[in-house]
Design a protein around this nucleic acid. Structure first.
Lengths: 338, 338
DNA sequence: CGCCTATCCTACAACGTTGTAGACTCACCT
DNA sequence: AGGTGAGTCTACAACGTTGTAGGATAGGCG
């Protein structure tokens, strides 16, 4: 059986509360009392019962993180960053996988399954902007991602429009003029796909190049297979292009594969850039140019903001939006001018 | 404020304990009483306080998972599988990252930081067999991975030797005779690298082929960069080979990249097989043959065994070893006979 | 008719912790 | 000498839940 405050108190010849005070660094304790208590703690190998502490304090020191799937590299890396950020602030992270499924996401918001957390970092994929009102919950919630904007909670996101514009501008700076896009979502305005497409169009416009619908490939998901399939369709349709903007690295890698099978040289014939800065792109053949969306900054901000909401220090501060700084990373896949 | 049993009891006109009984499906409750309580619960939006429940029952319903890094694809996918397996059994998962660092791993075993979990799934990377005694802890612990064998706890692992033998045999069956290995660890006997090298040698021996030390490339880590560097060294040393066994997919992908840069055709000139069945290998160019180590089975077994230890049903059952079933997956990288 | 058992419900204590209120000592000031 | 205040410590209650013991009612049996 684990030792309790009572056992330590008995061993040290003091009251339970004094032991509690020692543990919580209460100021006014005589040095020798403190010493005796510390010794008793060490001897009995005492450590506080966190359930009891939580019951008393109403805090668990645990935050929840809901992501679609850890097998999606972006979310695995995000989760890793968040765990590190949480650790720096003395918090533990409990991870839920939603599968990117809207009903599963709503269930997580409403069900009492995460009663053992102080708050939630929520990265939905299936929900859309019309679901924003579901974010009105009675626990601290910080929204991640690009599915919902202007919701009732704090929101940490990447600069989708601007970084997509920068990615496109990067390809333009290499002299590319017919830039295909892979991963658009039919009719989407808000959401990673919609915003990144918007950035793409802005860059074209600034360069005085007409937007050509035939260069846009639509997919439902953002897996490698989707990137590969889209590229196959573009090639079969006989669309001419000298560059590809993959809406994420995974799509770009899938597209690259098909391009190479078809005998197109990268970057000589077609320059490629992705989005996310996954580890994988650093070792692909050729290495993949990409956008570093500032994952560590997103993680750090999200945890910080959630902790502020949990502590209640910020009172009734209205919902805030945070955009992480991004960076264009040029690698082999876009190194050559056309 | 969240509703408590007391509030519900008051609203339903029954005792606190009756509400508790309704929630816990106690048998002898009159239908109409139950009905009234349920209504009160629904109306007040009551949900149990898990801290209080934990304090009372001594169980939290949370298990810990300690892995090196979620940015390593294998562990991200393993974590995903484990979360799903845990969910099926009504458990939540709290993830720690050790960084694969021995001292950090030991700290997790000794420190009281995971007092809020009922048990731990532990996948060390830095610890070695001599550290086995550190696994003697006073909480339920299930060991994962290949770093330690014969320790004092239950252990779930993949069939390293046999599946490495099967991978090698697969290459042999394609007529390959000079099979390079990438990812060996100098002097290691136990551990993924040592065991897989052993399987490689067994397969050679069975085929009556001499083991050639010059075909073995040593690395300290198993990242893509290591696979790439090893392959560069092999090529520079002028060693002849017609196949490569990468000790994991990441190494194999790194090696493939360098092979292609050097103008070797895969699988025509060099057949390649990896190990882990990562999603990435399914979309590489060419697609990567690999070993499916039975990740879901590992996850499911690990969670099941841990839950058994937690419930104490198994009493003083001695430590058990579990080996998941593996499978050779042939893809393009090894499809052609030499 | 009285006893026994099954059903349905309640009061109370306990899990281990921390906040509150207050007791006691001692030095210091008026 | 009495009052004040800081320092040190303790007793008690409370957080919300569940196990234990037992009370009340009703039906079945000898």
């Amino acid at each position: 059986m684990a030792a309790t405050l009572k056992d330590v108190a008995l061993a040290a010849g003091v009251s339970i509360k004094t032991v509690s005070n020692v543990i919580n660094d209460y100021q006014h304790i005589r040095a020798d009392t403190k010493q005796r208590v510390m010794e008793a703690i060490a001897e009995l190998g005492y450590s506080p019962n966190l359930s009891a502490r939580s019951l008393r304090s109403g805090r668990t020191g645990v935050i929840g993180l809901a992501v679609p799937e850890l097998s999606l590299s972006y979310f695995a890396e995000l989760a890793g960053s968040i765990i590190k950020a949480a650790e720096r602030r003395g918090l533990k992270v409990l991870i839920e996988q939603t599968g990117g499924d809207r009903s599963h996401e709503l269930e997580i918001l409403s069900s009492p399954r995460l009663q053992m957390t102080d708050g939630l970092l929520f990265s939905p994929l299936g929900m859309s902007n019309e679901d924003a009102h579901h974010l009105n919950v009675n626990f601290p919630l910080v929204l991640l991602g690009e599915r919902i904007f202007g919701g009732p909670t704090d929101h940490v996101t990447m600069s989708n429009v601007e970084s997509a514009r920068a990615a496109t501008a990067h390809l333009l700076s290499k002299g590319r003029r017919r830039i295909a896009v892979v991963g658009a979502h039919e009719g989407e305005v808000i959401g990673s796909a919609g915003l990144r497409l918007q950035g793409y169009r802005q860059a074209l416009e600034e360069a005085g190049i007409a937007f050509e619908p035939e260069l846009v490939a639509y997919t439902t998901f953002w897996h490698r297979a989707n990137g590969a399939r889209s590229m196959r369709e573009l090639l079969e349709a006989g669309v001419a292009f000298d560059a590809v903007f993959g809406m994420n690295d995974t799509l770009a890698l899938g597209a690259m594969r098909v391009l190479q099978e078809a005998g197109r040289r990268i970057p000589d014939d077609v320059a490629v850039i992705g989005f996310d800065d996954l580890d994988e792109g650093r070792y692909s053949l050729p290495t993949l140019s990409t956008i570093d969306p500032g994952r560590d900054e997103i993680a750090d901000t999200a945890v910080r903001v959630l902790q502020e909401r949990i502590s209640g220090r910020d009172g009734e501060t209205p919902p805030r939006e945070f955009e992480a700084r991004f960076q264009v990373i040029e690698r082999e896949s876009s190194a050559l001018p056309a």
